[in-house]
Structures are given as C-alpha cells and as structure tokens.
C-alpha cells in the first residue's frame, strides 16, 4: 500500500503551521466576536497552544488530548464560550488557510477535524 501524505505534509509541514498559527491568531485577536476571550492571555503560551492544536488538526506529530482541551477551556466556558464562538474560530481558521492558498477540499478536511474537538472544547 502507498503512504498517503498527511494533511500536515500536504500543507507544507512545520513552516506552514507556523505561518497559519500567526495569521489565525492575528485574526482572532482582532475579531470582535471572540477577541475578549484572549484578553490578558500570554502571547507565547497561546501561540504554543495554537501550534499544538493546528499540528493536531493538520494530522502532524502531536500529543493532543481531549482532556487538555476540556481543562484548557473550562474557564472560558464559564465566561460564556459557546457554539457560536467555536463557529467563528473555525471560520477564521478557514479564512487563514484560504489566504495562504490552501485548496478548498483541504480546508474542508481541516474544518472537519477542528469540528471534532467541539464537544471537548465546550465541556460536553
């Protein structure tokens, strides 16, 4: 059987992830619908988390766990994080990838993987 390149490899590996992390983080920080959730958050730590998350949704090497996702967002759920915010984050991620020239079917794949974390993020 032939090895299928992972989405991570198709997107361009670590360099592409780094760029996508920066660009999507810039978008969420300036989007009125979600930016308040990032107030007072340490930029380096947030970028490290975002990198782990995108590496995971791109199917790259990662040590993502659903439990981390629950614990990491519990305080935000208390502050009102809900489905609409998850929608926004997935939308902004798609926009970022499309600006980076990623093909639509790949973006759909990434969105579906991000979607699979929704219940963990929202603590359901």
């Amino acid at each position: 059987m032939m090895f299928m390149p992972t989405l991570y490899e198709q997107l361009g590996g670590q360099a592409a992830v780094n760029l996508a992390v920066d660009n999507s983080y810039r978008k969420v920080l300036t989007d009125d619908r979600v930016k308040s959730f990032f107030d007072g958050v340490d930029m380096d730590q947030q970028i490290a988390k975002q990198k782990a998350f995108l590496t995971m949704v791109f199917g790259g090497p990662n040590n993502y766990s659903g439990l981390d996702m629950r614990q990491g967002h519990a305080h935000l759920v208390k502050r009102g994080l809900n489905d609409s915010h998850v929608d926004t984050i997935i939308e902004l991620l798609g926009k970022t990838l499309s600006e980076l020239g990623v093909a639509e079917p790949l973006i759909q794949q990434v969105a579906a993987l991000a979607e699979s974390t929704r219940n963990d993020v929202l603590g359901r």
């Binding site: 780094n18 760029l19 920066d22 983080y25 810039r26 920080l29 300036t30 930029m43 380096d44 970028i47």
Partner: peptide, 11 residues
Amino acid sequence: KMQLFLAGAGS
C-alpha cells in the same frame, strides 16, 4: 510585542 505582532511581525 503584541502590537508588533498585530502589525505583521512574525511571532
């Protein structure tokens, strides 16, 4: 750091 990042500098 945050403002330079928002102005386009890579993290």
